[in-house]
Design a protein around this nucleic acid. Structure first.
Lengths: 159, 159
DNA sequence: CTCCATACCGAACGATCGTTAGGGTATCGA
DNA sequence: TCGATACCCTAACGATCGTTCGGTATGGAG
């Protein structure tokens, strides 16, 4: 922005405040993406929308997303605790989609839910390292979900 | 190791050399994990073994794995190029397992291979951020693969 | 015992970084 | 018109970091 470093201190109190604000904005963006999912959609559709939303935030706000996903570890004190809680809440909301999917019978009743959620979040979170901003992230999200939902095994499994 | 920082310079030429050596050791470890997969195993078994091997390296050599997965980005010059090639070769070897699985009919012929590989690598690479060293990584790998292979959709899909 | 290589220490240098202090200028309401 | 406020600059400080250099202990080879 063409501003000298010293000038920043009329707007912030210190470096930590910057990290905190960016991390908070990240939390807002990712939660907002989940808020945009229609309540009456079917579970698998919700999961797909969640992946779309997550990847879209990563692509459109790469710096903010990087802080939310990675750099938040350098937060300290009560703000770190608050962030961790907010982040856990996000993961919880993702997990809720899977639970709902199982309860409504769209997902297998014997699904390893925690493994599935971890898989979902891994794909979503790792994306910040390779996602190209001008890529079609919606399509990518759909392809991820297609593999996750339908699996990889051949229709005719040879014993 | 109780050694002063200046003393290091009798063993290395600079900070970059350290990064390079750790990154190289990471490459060796991850490739070695793939080398340990029996050639005559069935594709899905190979994929499972690959996930086991990857997670095991992450758990047992967390620092080395972190460099291989994340910090290699700070390499510069021809060594960076060499590392990127080695890393791409690793991803290629993972991809080969999936291609083999499709060709031998164990995986769906219409599988979105690149999405599947990316999903596999995302789960494997993101693990370094949360994996607890004393966890049973083999079991975790199996559960990941179970979801990936069999999918999440309920057996009876309600239209 | 001498000699030499190996390994480590302690102190210092230069660069960078986060921060503070002091001063300058434009804007706006009283 | 005046004063306050917002905004930005330059300069400097202290801390940290990567690196260099001279000195010192150890230990085996001749």
């Amino acid at each position: 922005m063409g501003v000298q470093k010293g000038s920043l201190y009329h707007h912030i109190r210190g470096k930590e405040d910057l990290l905190w604000e960016v991390a908070s904005e990240g939390a807002r963006s990712f939660h907002a993406a989940l808020d945009g999912i229609p309540d009456d959609a079917r579970p698998i559709e919700k999961i797909r929308a969640a992946m779309r939303g997550h990847l879209r935030v990563v692509a459109e706000q790469l710096d903010v997303a990087t802080v939310f996903i990675q750099e938040w570890r350098y937060l300290e004190g009560p703000r770190r605790d608050e962030f961790v809680a907010e982040r856990r809440r996000y993961e919880q909301r993702i997990g809720d989609l899977f639970r709902e999917g199982r309860e409504l019978g769209e997902l297998r009743s014997d699904l390893d839910e925690s493994a599935a959620v971890l898989l979902f979040l891994s794909a979503a979170n790792w994306a910040y390292t390779w996602l190209h901003p001008d890529r079609d992230t919606d399509d990518l999200a759909d392809r991820f979900c297609a593999v996750l939902v339908d699996g990889m095994r051949g229709y005719a499994t040879p014993s």
